[in-house]
Amino acid sequence: MNTATGSRKLTIARAMAEATAQEMRQDPTVFVMGEDVGPLGGVFGNTRGLYDEFGAERIRDTPISETAFIGAAVGAASDGMRPIVELMFVDFFGVCMDAIYNMMAKNTYFSGGKVKVPMVLMTSTGGGYSDGGQHSQCLYGTFAHLPGMKVVVPSNAYDAKGLMTAAIRDDNPVVFMYHKSLQGMGWLGTEKGATVATPEEPYTVEIGKAAVVKEGRDLTLVSLGAGVHHCLRAAKALGEEGVDVEVVDLRSLVPLDRETVRASVAKTGRLIVVDEDYHSYGVSGEIIASVAEHDPACLKAAPRRVAYPDIPIPFAPTMEQWALPNADKIVDAFHQMMTQ
């Protein structure tokens, strides 16, 4: 939830850069590595200004060698540094996943808790702008499925700054997944609701806590990242029909705040999960299971999901837009739920 008091608005890109700069100023072990994070400031703007302030030693442009530099982050993190490392698009995890899920995520456990891996892996997600099937995926479920790494997905700049600060300070590896349409980069189109009041002073948003971003009594919408904004639009539309919608922004996938979801559904009795990631084996199924296995009796109707179909993401805008979740589909899902 946006608890900011000031009125200075930031984009998520700026919020991420500000959190990073503030932590770098007070902790010399924090440094950044990735492709085009230096003078360019990151393809998605989230390291802008850092190179000018901290220089090439601490803001390191890497070769296109993800296996090596993400593996290097694991090694540096275990040796007293706090690397922030960027995988430019989450779709590229294919070339370097071993460093991520077999080392970053497991070294702490393998060492019986003796080896810490305090690093942040930031990576962009999402499509909707016709970048084709290797540059548009979300893969939230893929990362959240694998034990040993925390996973956060902010929907707005306030949460992005607080989660980034928390991630950098965390003694565990954190995957920070930011959605391209929320970055506030004009060239990607911009979700206005993501650019919100963000305090200048450092603060944290607790990893593992969801936020109820809109309260309501009739229906619970659960989502993350860009999906939260679709839900808020759907809530508004349904509100005009007299339906009082509650919207839960998960913010973290690992740990997952099942309590907040269950409390909301216990109140409303109706659940729709909205996820831009693939339909099957993902976040939407996990949320529904978390409710159903806990208290199926609280459900007044079968839960539903509005997710990306189980197909590679097509390039043609007509096909891609048809396949993506949006507010209309959420409203339709509710109507179907009520006529069941």
Binding site: G132, G133, Q134, P312, F315, A316, P317, M319
Partner: peptide
């Protein structure tokens, strides 16, 4: 252009 008459009917795009 992502059209039906494209190499893959618009599923691939310029990188595919």
């Amino acid at each position: 252009f992502g059209k039906a008459t494209g190499l893959s009917g618009g599923r691939g795009g310029h990188m595919h």
